[in-house]
Design a protein around this nucleic acid. Structure first.
Lengths: 345, 345
DNA sequence: TTGAAAGCGCTAACAC
DNA sequence: GTGTTAGCGCTTTCAA
């Protein structure tokens, strides 16, 4: 059943020529080596007759190129990352690369293990949304010669090429929108661990905006592993104590979902009782009742820039000095119904 | 910068022993070859001193095993497939395999190209949600010795191991729920191309259920490439002509979204004006207003069974005769608010 | 115009 | 107990 694949050698032998000749022809280098047209034909014919499939593994070993890149994120089933993955996949395919996708579940040791694995598999580069708190491990990887670009989350280190959304600004914009809509007491729903740059930046933006107009910041930190239950309990408690916020800025899509569930469960109407805006836009937000306002990230652009930088590294053209190693892409405010405050009081 | 990686050879040379010796030690086969403990230590020490990273490419070539499997679906950014991918990834990782993910966009030629590519890359197996109408191409692949299992969609051929949801039954269950809820004129929103088994099976189930109670089937086929605009136009037309359905069975998640958008745009309240049930449950359905009823597929189970069968093929234990080559997993009806008909008239 | 030879990094069979 | 040899399938000089 598992018959051996036909190799270059098989073709060569059955034609009475050398492997090299066959390789040259099959790689379209016949012309530049002045190989007879007739020979070419025979080779090509034989190859297709034998149903020859080049073994890319062998080719990769010989060439020192695997034509594979890795994408490492916290969870590929999160819609933000799956959209990102799709964008990267398209880019990679067009450039002749396959994509190996890995999820880390925010576990640093798992991330490190996965990164080593990819390195051992000789991937030509890695695009990473890291859960790590510092970049020692990653600079080591980079120094091993593995092209690497950080996406979505930045680390506090200047050595690594990084492509992120402008999360701080997004936090500000979203918060300002809340304030401009007449809300006086917006709660920011953040997530731990606190070193994740996306969240901390968004919190900063929120804090700036709120402070600027003399409102005291109010941030609740939701533990990553228990988002839904924690948020529901929180809302319940605030309601019981009669000190609900008049609006909520949910700082990523998982906490937005949790907030929506909790609000609904506790019979709190959006936006009548509580306004809501989400960081991360989701297709479903558009047709919910009410439609959810959101700060949208430029996912396709993130992928594009990150992939471009990775290719630069792979092709050694990283010499092209960038203005800055880290680029922050602009986000976009989408106003829908969930932040429509009832007439001002 | 791109310094050469240290190889087995480097360790061997710098220690004055043979490559083979080093290989054995590093693979934990020192004991069974009676290699001196002291030698082991020296090797291990040197390996870590030199920061040795085994080249999996070379290892794979030698072993004839790539420790990689492919997952091919129509679009990895569709939440159904990204959840499936995550489940497969976990299984694969636990079994020591990496996962290469590919999207076909329902294009048969792209699918074929991707499949060949994976084959050339020597993946050890492929899990595929195929867009093809027949299985000639796939049996050829299988006959080339590539372990293959179909997931989500089945083809009309008995040779290929296949794992799907019981879509026909799901279609029936969903439709019956509509009927039981008092709806008299349910429209099924299908999608073309018509050969996609998931959809055609669901239509069958719908038709059975509706026919059984003497209602005439009413199926609208939405072209795959223009779902949103088509659905919106359709609803608009039906409304204008004053012959709206009293309920809609949206036969997959993309058409559900489209229906929701269209209904909202045309000011049609769910479920007051039109009831709605979706094939495929989405996390967001739970907290929408109204919460959307749905037929839920057992995604984790699909992945599990498919992966198990793939492993059986890879390990040659596929001899274990299955009861049937194709398995259909039960689906689950989730009743929420979108199918709550107002008091019967 | 074609072929021979070397070698990518690894492992398994078989000596010593 | 330890080391040698051969070779996975491919590409690329270099020589003929």
């Amino acid at each position: 059943m598992k018959q051996k694949n036909v190799s270059l050698n098989d073709i060569a032998k059955s034609l009475g020529v050398s492997r090299a000749l066959v390789s040259l022809v099959l790689n379209g280098k016949a012309a530049e080596h002045g190989i007879a047209e007739s020979t070419c034909q025979r080779v090509l014919a034989k190859a297709s007759e034998l149903n020859y499939k080049p073994n890319q593994l062998a080719r990769s070993l010989r060439l020192g190129r695997s034509f594979t890149i890795g994408l490492v994120v916290s969870d590929i089933s999160n819609i933000f990352y799956s959209k990102l993955a799709r964008a990267v996949e398209d880019l990679a395919e067009r450039a002749g690369f396959s994509l190996v996708i890995c999820s880390t579940d925010e576990q640093v040791d798992k991330e490190q293990k996965l990164l080593r694995l990819l390195q051992n598999r000789q991937v030509e580069g890695i695009i990473l949304s890291s859960s790590q708190a510092d970049c020692d491990d990653l600079t080591r990887l980079k120094n091993d010669g593995v092209p690497l670009v950080l996406i979505d989350r930045k680390l506090d280190c200047k050595q690594l090429s990084t492509v992120v959304s402008n999360n701080r600004l997004g936090g500000e914009i979203g918060t300002k929108h809340l304030i401009d809509s007449g809300y006086k007491r917006p709660l920011a729903l953040a997530i731990t661990p606190a070193h994740i740059s996306t969240i901390s930046e968004r919190v900063k933006g929120y804090t700036n905006a709120v402070t600027e107009v003399g409102i005291a910041p109010w941030v609740a930190e939701v533990p990553f592993e228990e988002v839904p239950s924690y948020v529901e309990a929180l809302i319940g408690r605030l309601k019981a104590e009669n000190r609900l916020p008049d609006s909520i800025f949910a700082l990523n899509n998982s906490v937005t979902s949790a907030a929506l569930v909790a609000l609904k469960k506790h019979g709190l109407d959006v936006p009548a009782s509580v306004g809501l805006i989400s960081f991360d836009d989701i297709p479903y937000f558009e047709f919910m009742n009410p439609a959810i306002s959101a700060v949208e990230q430029p996912i396709a652009k993130l992928a594009e820039v990150a992939f471009g930088r990775l290719m630069d590294q792979i092709n050694g053209s990283s010499a092209t000095a960038y203005e800055s190693l880290t680029v922050e892409l602009p986000v976009n405010l989408i106003v829908r119904e969930s932040t429509t405050k009832q007439q001002p009081n």
